[in-house]
C-alpha cells in the first residue's frame, strides 16, 4: 500500500469510528470491552472450580464477554482472594468464592484484604451442613455426642477440613453453646476426612449433605433453622436446643469501587444465568440447589456471617 493511500485510509477509519460513536451514542467505556477474568482461589477441578466452569458458557453469553477462569491457589484461598481484591474495580475481574476466604480467614490472620474489600454481586447457591457419623458409631444422636463429651471431656473426636473452615467453626460453636469439650482433628480435605471417619479414626464430621448417601453415613442433625427437605426425619441442631446454623454457599464478588452500572449488569447476567434450565440441571447433577440472592442481599448476608464467625473465633481464642 503506497504511503499516501495508507494515510488516507487511516484517516477514513478514524472518521468512521468517530461518526460511528456519534451515531450510536456509545459511552467512552462500554462494559464489558474485553474478556472478564474470573478468579477462583482453589485448584482446577475443585468444588468451586467445577461450578464456575459449568456456569462459564452461559454467564459469558449473558454478559456478552468472554470469561477467562484463573485458578490462583494457596493458603486456604486467601492468595487468590487477595489478588481479586487488588484488581482494577472495573468489572473485568470478578471473584467466585465460598464463605471461608472472606468470612473467616480475615479473622484468623493478617491479610491484605477484608470483607469490605469486596462489593457483592450475587449468591449462587446455599447448602446447609449436616452433622454425620458412621452407621456403626456409638453416637447416633446429638444427645449421645453431648452426653459422652460431658461425661468424659475430649472423648468424642470431631474432624474438620482445616483450621478456620466451616466444619471447624461449627465445632467451636457447638462446644461453646453446649459447654462441652471435644477433640478437633484437622485434615486436608473432605476425602481424607471420609477415610478417617470410615476407618474409625474420628467420630463426627459436619459438611455438605451429599456425603451422607455417598458414603452411606448416618445423619445426626442438620445445621439449619428448618429440617432439610431431603432429610425430613433428621432433626435440626436448633431442635436439639442450640440455635446454630451453618451452610456452604458460593457468591460472586467484585472489588470495592466497581461502578454501580457495571455491577448492575453483572447482577443481571448472573440472575439470568441461574435461571437458565441447562444451568439448573448441571448444578442439580452436582447436588447443589440454586438459591439466588442479589448483591444487596448477599452483602448483608455475608456481613452477618463475617460477624458471627469473628465472634466464635474470638471466643475460642483463635482471633488474630
Amino acid at each position: 500500500m503506497p504511503k499516501g493511500t495508507r494515510r488516507a485510509f487511516s484517516r477514513l477509519a478514524a472518521a468512521t469510528a468517530f461518526l460511528g460513536s456519534l451515531a450510536f451514542g456509545l459511552p467512552a467505556h462500554a462494559y464489558p470491552d474485553k474478556p472478564v477474568t474470573v478468579i477462583i482461589a482453589w485448584a482446577a477441578g475443585g468444588a468451586t472450580d467445577v461450578v464456575t466452569r459449568a456456569l462459564e458458557p452461559v454467564l459469558a453469553e449473558k454478559l456478552g464477554a468472554n470469561l477467562v477462569i484463573r485458578n490462583i491457589t494457596g493458603a486456604a484461598g486467601t492468595i487468590g482472594t487477595a489478588e481479586a481484591a487488588a484488581a482494577e474495580p472495573d468489572g473485568h475481574t470478578i471473584l467466585i468464592t465460598p464463605a471461608g476466604p472472606i468470612t473467616t480467614q480475615p479473622h484468623l490472620r493478617e491479610l491484605p484484604y477484608d470483607l469490605s474489600s469486596f462489593d457483592a454481586v450475587g449468591r449462587i447457591n446455599i447448602t446447609p451442613m449436616l452433622m454425620m457419623v458412621t452407621k456403626e458409631s456409638p453416637y447416633q444422636t446429638l444427645d449421645d455426642i453431648i452426653g459422652a463429651s460431658k461425661e468424659k471431656p475430649g472423648s468424642v473426636k470431631f474432624a474438620s477440613t482445616g483450621a478456620g473452615t466451616l466444619p471447624h467453626i461449627s465445632i467451636l460453636a457447638l462446644n461453646q453453646a453446649a459447654g462441652i469439650d471435644t477433640k478437633h482433628v484437622p485434615f486436608q480435605g473432605s476425602a481424607n476426612v471420609m477415610q478417617a471417619l470410615l476407618g474409625g479414626v474420628v467420630d463426627v464430621f459436619s459438611d455438605q449433605a451429599q456425603l451422607v448417601p455417598q458414603y452411606e453415613l448416618h445423619p445426626v442433625a442438620a445445621w439449619a433453622d428448618e429440617r432439610l427437605p431431603e432429610y425430613p426425619d433428621v432433626p435440626t441442631v436448633k431442635e436439639g436446643g442450640y440455635d446454630l446454623s451453618f451452610a456452604n454457599w458460593l457468591g460472586v464478588f467484585v472489588p470495592t469501587g466497581t461502578p454501580e452500572d457495571v455491577r448492575a449488569q453483572l447482577e443481571e447476567a448472573l440472575k439470568a444465568t441461574l435461571e437458565t434450565p441447562s444451568i439448573v440441571e448441571a448444578l442439580e447433577k452436582m447436588k447443589l440447589t440454586i438459591s439466588h440472592m442479589n448483591g444487596e442481599e448477599l452483602a448483608a448476608f455475608a456481613k452477618a456471617e463475617h460477624e458471627r464467625n469473628g465472634k466464635l473465633l474470638a471466643d475460642a481464642g483463635l482471633k488474630k
Binding site: A75, A76, L108, R109, G162, A163, G164, P186, Q188
Partner: peptide
C-alpha cells in the same frame, strides 16, 4: 507457608 493444623503462617 500455612501451618496445616492451626492455619497460622
Amino acid at each position: 507457608g500455612t501451618d496445616p493444623m492451626t492455619g497460622s503462617v
